[in-house]
Amino acid sequence: MSQLHTVNKSPLDRNALESAIQHATKGNAVLMIEDGVYGAMQGTQKSAIVSDAIGDISFYVMGPDLKARGIDEARIIDGIKVVDYSGFVELVAKHDATQSWL
């Protein structure tokens, strides 16, 4: 089994991203959407929780949500892939189940 975890909260506000990463097993994917996209940024107090987990877990971020919030892709942590809504659908299809960290 392989799971997709979606996170829609800023890691500076809630622990959803941190908890999702702690509960993601090797080979799982984490997709940051809505306010969750702030978790993809370099240089925040929480960037390390993502960069330390890259490798065991695949990280994705919603491009439309980055653009809406004025976040330049150049400021995203290395190794995180940017996807659109079709990419989101593909990720859901590719994994056995999706868990939303609300």
């Binding site: 089994m1 392989s2 799971q3 702690q22 509960h23 999706t98 939303s100 609300l102």
Partner: peptide, 18 residues
Amino acid sequence: STAEMAEIMEQSDVVMSF
């Protein structure tokens, strides 16, 4: 433990969060 919880999540077919 967190590791055991992660495994329970991993083994689930349908995960409902509210």
